[in-house]
Design a protein around this nucleic acid. Structure first.
Lengths: 342, 342
DNA sequence: TAACTTATCGGTATCGTTTCCGAATATCTT
DNA sequence: AAGATATTCGGAAACGATACCGATAAGTTA
């Protein structure tokens, strides 16, 4: 072992081999203008001395850090972890490290994370916007810096934003057709935030599917959720049951509130799906553990993450070509006991 | 705006103000040997030009990157996301960025991630070992580099490893005392991997609690789980039900298998908790959604993450003082319907 | 008044790479 | 055999910041 405990650099290798630093550098990078013989020498010594390149220095010189910044609202539930997993798949294939940040549905934290990521010189930023994000200045700033930016799932209303989303409208529409096909005529909707593209689309599909099938759209049947917890779902369900004409089906924009609604219905002795059919959204693992099993819509998390990285890589090559480009994934309705009437 | 689209450096600021680069640097760092007047100048211009320090350059020079590497087996379920959340809390307080990697319970991926993190010059590494980690060479390498290393939850058998864990023995022992107190006399255990400290401790507590209460230890009642899924739990439960003398209680080392066992018992028409009492481990959110609600043990994820960062910070100051130091958190038994007999 | 602190700032080496450019040798043309 | 082209390597300038050391001016002390 050379140099005692100190970390060794290409200068050390160069000195030992009597080569120039630049030659060692190109040898390690397998450049074409280094002979095979010297490459072999360099590689051998690097191996022997366990040389670890200082990626900070390389990044500084190159101008890029080989790091990908990711901002998610949270990593609870199953969806965002799945996306993160997909991102890591794609990133490791491309030789990129991934910096993950949680905004906790807080716009201020999101801004902070954007600043931090830009300061850390990430090569690109992948973000799913928080619930509370109204001001979009920090996203503009990313573009201004020339850093590739791609959204996933939650896309803010930016004209030329790139991103990959699931076709929420289509998924929700399938839910509605399914419920209507099961004979439900008075379908309620537990709605997410109206300013989120995802939940807005689900609501739009809810409405348009009703009208398309000659069913009335009753505003009383649309209950906004304060958050995506079981409690919020139970509260919303309680309100629906207090109606003069309660619904015979509930389509929830999220799974956990659907679970909460299920609990309340159980307490009240209302049968699911016979009295009230129930469908959620996200296909959380717990949907198969409750009784009756909860129908839901799968959002293709892993696929979404991988697609987001692909889009980023394309953006890296030719920014202008992919401006405004968005990839739309097909969701998958998973029908279970909670919505099947016999 | 100056310099067109280019990112500006302290050299630009220095040139504009007629100062030396070094002075600008110290001004920005609020060094004591810069006058208040010039500091104000520098800060004003930095603000006006939206100067963003290049942390790569600073890190290169300083020798530390302000980044914390984290390796988790996965971010499914609720526990590890909670830990990650705690880590982010602690890290952001300390001004550190967090690099999160998933090993997917694969020792090879874990090694890869260690290499990547070391190459990325992280200031420290926080890791919960994978299921399949036998060879510990990559952990030794971290120590050899002088990089602080702290484990959480899953700790390998390294003599002087630092880490923060939950008292699995205590938690499991409480479970057993609870079950015995409920009148259960033939308690089975769905066991996790024997080479993991966590699950090994749970098994040990299972055994010792039995003996301490004068109950026999029957090897047939200990069923190893292939993984921590519901299917594995159902399979294990099936095996238990095939026994000549089936158990009257099951303590599962994880929640999801407990959920699977619950499903199977329901299918067979076996009442929980009257015929078989059931307790899991991890306190997953779904435990409150199934019927009967599942008793479980909370592992204090957020707290664990924060404690891990604290331990890292101490390690950073005085490595030698905290060698072998481990923080032990108290778990919390949460009793629900699945284990309460009346 | 000379010497000595103190406050403030400039110059420069350095961190470890990459990359451009040019030099030296070797190989290939007619 | 002389010039043209390829191959292989070395030198040196960056990248952007930090830190050591020395210089200058002002204030203090004897």
């Amino acid at each position: 072992m050379a140099k005692g405990n100190k970390r060794i650099s290409i200068a050390d290798l160069a000195a030992e081999l009597g080569l120039a630093i630049s030659t060692v550098s190109r040898a390690l990078n397998n450049a074409p203008d280094v002979s095979g013989a010297t490459k072999a020498q360099v590689w051998a010594l690097a191996e022997k001395w366990n040389y670890q390149p200082n990626s900070l220095a390389a990044s500084l010189r190159r101008g890029r850090s080989n790091m990908l910044g990711v901002i998610v609202p949270h990593i609870n539930g199953a969806f965002f972890p799945a996306v993160v997993h997909g991102i890591e798949n794609g990133a490791s294939q491309a030789g990129l490290n991934v910096l993950i940040c949680q905004s906790n549905e807080d716009a201020r934290q999101e801004q902070k994370h954007v600043e931090a990521l830009l300061k850390a010189q990430v090569d690109g930023i992948l973000v799913s916007a928080s619930n509370t994000t109204e001001d979009l200045a920090h996203f503009e700033r990313i573009r201004a810096q020339g850093t590739p930016l791609v959204f996933f799932d939650r896309m803010p209303a930016l004209p030329q934003a790139c991103g990959v989303v699931v076709d929420d409208y289509r998924g929700a529409y399938q839910v509605m057709e399914h419920l209507i096909g099961q004979g439900c005529r008075r379908i309620a909707h537990l709605a997410g935030p109206p300013h989120l593209n995802t939940t807005a689309e689900r609501l739009r599909a809810y409405r348009e599917a009703l009208l398309a099938h000659g069913l009335p759209f009753d505003e009383q049947l649309v209950v906004p959720l304060d958050n995506s917890t079981t409690d919020a779902g139970a509260a919303a369900m309680r309100r629906l049951l207090g109606l003069y004409q309660p619904p015979d089906a509930v389509f929830s924009a999220y799974d956990f509130p659907a679970g909460g609604a299920l609990q309340l219905l159980e307490e009240r002795g209302i049968r699911v799906p016979q009295d009230v059919a129930l469908v959620g959204f996200s296909n959380e693992p717990f949907t198969t553990m409750v009784r009756p099993r909860l129908s839901s819509v799968d959002q293709r998390g892993v696929l979404m993450g991988e697609a987001a990285v692909q889009l980023f890589l394309q953006l890296l090559k030719r920014t202008e070509l992919f401006s405004g480009r968005r990839i739309v994934l097909k969701p998958q309705l998973v029908v279970r006991e909670s919505s099947v009437r016999r």
